[in-house]
Design a protein around this nucleic acid. Structure first.
Lengths: 339, 339
DNA sequence: AAATAAGATGAAAACCATAAAATGGGAAAG
DNA sequence: CTTTCCCATTTTATGGTTTTCATCTTATTT
């Protein structure tokens, strides 16, 4: 039977209320009393029971995190950002993998609410009506990280995926390419899939290039699919001379497909990836990539959540973090203004 | 104000005890009563409060997971194994990053025990007396994953690191190499650092090769350090012709260092990595690596923990999972028995 | 010195569930 | 027709805190 606050009270010759005050750093305690209590705590090896505390205070200092797959480089980086900030604000994290399966996501939301989390951080692709309903079925604050719902009902932290894809494509266009392929993400993902594709299309259109459906393939974000898509591109009669991939893993697949076909990157094929995961430094040539600041997205999302949990004023509930392109050797040196 | 079990009881015209039974699937409830209760739950949108339940039942169905760094490919894979099995057994996971800092580790153990986790899963390098003491300061079952304490006091799940390193080195020896370099992990890590080094040494010794200190460098497990270590090796007068790296990231660094120096892998330099993380498929040439089944280690560790949490009989508290070498193109084809 | 304010402490209720003990009704056993 | 047993259910106690609210000290003001 573990030591309770009552035992400490008896040992110190005070009431439990006083012990509680000492433990919680309430200033209204005489120094001498505090000392006695602290001594008793030490002597007995008292360890507060957070469950009891949670029941009494209706706060668990725990937030639920629903993530598609923690073993993905992308999400694990995000998770680290979340956890770091959570720690900073004295929260713990219950981490759950959803594999982006709707049913599981809904069930997880429910489980986490049962566990009385103080807040919820949700990552996933599409946010459906079901999600919204489940997430608002209690008054627990929720923040979306690296995703958004269509109507911006919920607070969210993302980058501007349309613009990011636009910029990447524009960069390739500026390099003089006319045939630019794209390996998209799953199109049921409104941001990472659809939005990036839209940005690509828009950039082509603005440059007066016409979209060639043969140069667009939907990938599944994994290396293999980038490899496959690209070797298919390269088997075309009219090959692309540049590839924009919706994530880095596929982009690396693209590089290797080119190399396997005896082509040089970037000379014969330029490649731009997306996300700038740590992998980009571990390929030859190193991969030029659109920086999506995963860690920061996680960190900012968590910070935002703490504000909601503390009823702080929030002026912007939809946060767009800046993106940029990190240039490496999978693209040719940038055209500096020359004649 | 949320709906409580009491509200449901009133609505259904029964006592809270009966509601509790229905919610917990206790069979001793008349079908009609169960139906009434279920209807009331539905009508009121009742959601059990897991904190209250935890206080009353002294079980939280939550386990604490202390991991060095979730953003590492190695550990995130492990974490996924843990989480999958946890889910299977209806547990949730509180995930904490320790960065392998002793102070933080101890503090996390304490926090998790305060939160009344039903079990603890610990990952880290060295297990010191402090750890043991903190981990046994309560009677919460603990399992070590991918690490062990020196005396095997605690249950653990690992592979045989000595043997794994021995095998990898032996493989290179069998390829006829006389100068085999090693990039070790941090030596304060008894398993991933020291043990692998010991295995390497033993293999050399058994083959009658003598250890050359110039061919051993301590790395920090990151890509860069593999890159640096190898380019240093290659600047030696008497170059190594093969490299064994204590993890894959460093091994990939080794490959690139060789390539940057104009050498061919595996023709001029054979490289073997360790862990077989997903990255090994994303380099050219693809990396031969010692398979450390991260996912399985996590899964088995979690399974073991569930046994302890349910007071099941455990016959082996120190589990060694099998390892093997996965051959790819960074090593030459294996010598099949020829003349 | 009296009145008042402020600070320190304690007693008891509340938090929401589970667990153990008690109750009542009906069936089987004697 | 009791007695015993079983089943479904209720009653009561319990878990370990925090949180009012009341009380008692002590300090401050006039």
């Amino acid at each position: 039977m573990p030591v309770t606050i009552y035992d400490v009270a008896r040992e110190a010759g005070v009431s439990m209320a006083t012990v509680s005050r000492v433990v919680n750093g309430n200033p209204n305690v005489k120094p001498l009393t505090r000392k006695k209590v602290l001594a008793a705590i030490e002597r007995l090896g008292y360890r507060p029971n957070a469950v009891a505390r949670g029941l009494a205070s209706k706060k668990t200092t725990t937030v639920g995190v629903i993530i598609p797959d923690i073993s993905s480089l992308f999400f694990s980086e995000l998770a680290r950002g979340i956890e770091d900030i959570a720690t900073m604000y004295k929260y713990n994290i219950i981490l759950c993998n959803s594999d982006q399966r709707l049913e599981k996501e809904l069930q997880l939301i429910n489980t986490l609410l049962e566990k009385q989390v103080d807040g919820l951080l949700f990552m996933g692709a599409e946010i459906k009506e079901d999600h919204l309903q489940a997430l608002t079925s209690s008054s627990v604050p929720t923040v979306l990280a690296a995703t958004r719902d269509a109507d911006n009902t919920l607070p969210s932290v993302t980058i501007d995926h349309f613009q990011a894809a636009y910029d990447a494509t524009k960069e390739l266009i500026d390099h003089g390419h006319k045939r630019i392929a794209m390996i998209t993400g799953p199109m049921n993902d409104p941001l990472g899939g659809l939005m990036r594709y839209e940005g690509y299309k828009q950039a082509l259109q603005d440059a007066g290039l016409k979209l060639d459906d043969a140069l667009v393939t939907q990938g599944n974000l994994f290396y293999e699919s980038g490899l496959r898509a690209t070797s298919q591109f390269l088997s075309l009669e009219k090959r692309p001379t540049a590839v924009f991939a919706a994530n880095d893993e596929m982009a690396i697949g693209a590089i290797h497909a080119a190399q396997d076909a005896g082509l040089k990157v970037p000379d014969d094929l330029e490649v731009i990836g997306h996300d700038n995961i740590r992998l980009v430094e571990m390929v030859r040539p190193r991969l030029t990539s659109v920086v999506q600041p995963m860690y920061d997205i996680g960190a900012v999302a968590m910070r935002l959540l703490t504000k909601y949990m503390n009823n702080e004023q929030v002026d912007q509930h939809v946060v767009l973090l800046p993106h940029r392109i990190e240039y490496r050797e999978s693209t040719r040196p940038r055209a500096t203004a020359t004649s």
